[in-house]
Design a protein around this nucleic acid. Structure first.
Lengths: 145, 145
DNA sequence: CATCAATTGCAACACTGTTGCAAAACAAAC
DNA sequence: GTTTGTTTTGCAACAGTGTTGCAATTGATG
């Protein structure tokens, strides 16, 4: 655990983020799971330790520094997923900016699928497409086995 | 306008919805535009005439009856689009349940693109995909011309 | 007209997210 | 170690979205 935390501190320092307790603990949470976390997931896991607002600010900052990205799922819940470790189905080096998000209908978790390609799609004449976001729903690896 | 309203009443009756004032006015709004509307869009357009809650309940009911569908855009705002008339880039008969949503970065409007196919995508082994949602971002027909 | 069900408006609440400000923690210099 | 100035945190307050319960109104039907 101490080793892990040293790694987390190193990641924070690499992004010029002062490694405070809340930052270490939140980043540790992301590195521990392989799916996206909502603000309330994080708030409950760190129950009573930190203020709601500080968590929001930390998440926003992690987003700006490129450590995590925001996902709005089809029910309107905002979640956040880390780019390295379990946050993606490939490792940090192969993380793709634009990837498919998979939401499991059973456990509710959202997984980033960076190992598959986002297809090309043509839009009707007159429309100018800049980004294409894909989100799949179904049953995840864990729930289907 | 009177003619239009008769058509709207006919649509409501066809779905066994009692045609009250608020229902006629909301459905009329959807038939007047070719993009999705948020609750607050509707509330503002009908300013002071109806209660917030009644609008929410009407939208939920229209959704259950299949007159409109819900869209959560990537900023977390919930919008609703009708299936017939301007709500889709094809007419009611060619409306597809699963279609691409296009959000214009300039005007902010969301358009349903029912005329183009949703591609097939393979997910990694173990995942069982049931639905694939596509949402594009860019510049719409109106803003790019 | 009387009755019963459906619809609406209102009050209240929970949840998410944001902002301003004061207190605390921290780093750097002396 | 103490002082100084910056960063971070917690707290209070607020705005927006969406939901629920209940009472009053409306509307359909006999």
């Amino acid at each position: 655990m101490a080793e892990e935390f040293n790694e987390i501190i190193a990641v924070l320092k690499a992004q010029h983020i002062r490694p405070t307790k809340i930052r270490e603990e939140i980043l540790n949470l992301f590195f521990d799971v392989n799916h996206a976390l909502s603000h309330s997931d994080i708030f409950l896991k760190l129950k009573n330790k930190f203020d709601r607002v500080t968590i929001y600010r930390t998440l926003e900052m992690f987003g700006n520094k490129g450590l995590i990205h925001k996902i709005v799922d089809n029910s309107g819940v905002t979640k956040y997923a880390s780019h390295g470790h379990g946050g993606c189905d490939v490792n940090f080096k192969h993380h793709k900016t634009n990837h498919i998000h998979f939401k499991c209908k059973q456990c509710g978790n959202i997984y980033c699928l960076c190992s598959i390609e986002v297809p090309k799609v043509d839009v009707p004449a007159g429309y100018e497409m800049q980004v294409l976001n894909l989100s799949a729903e179904g049953i995840c690896k864990i729930c289907s086995s």
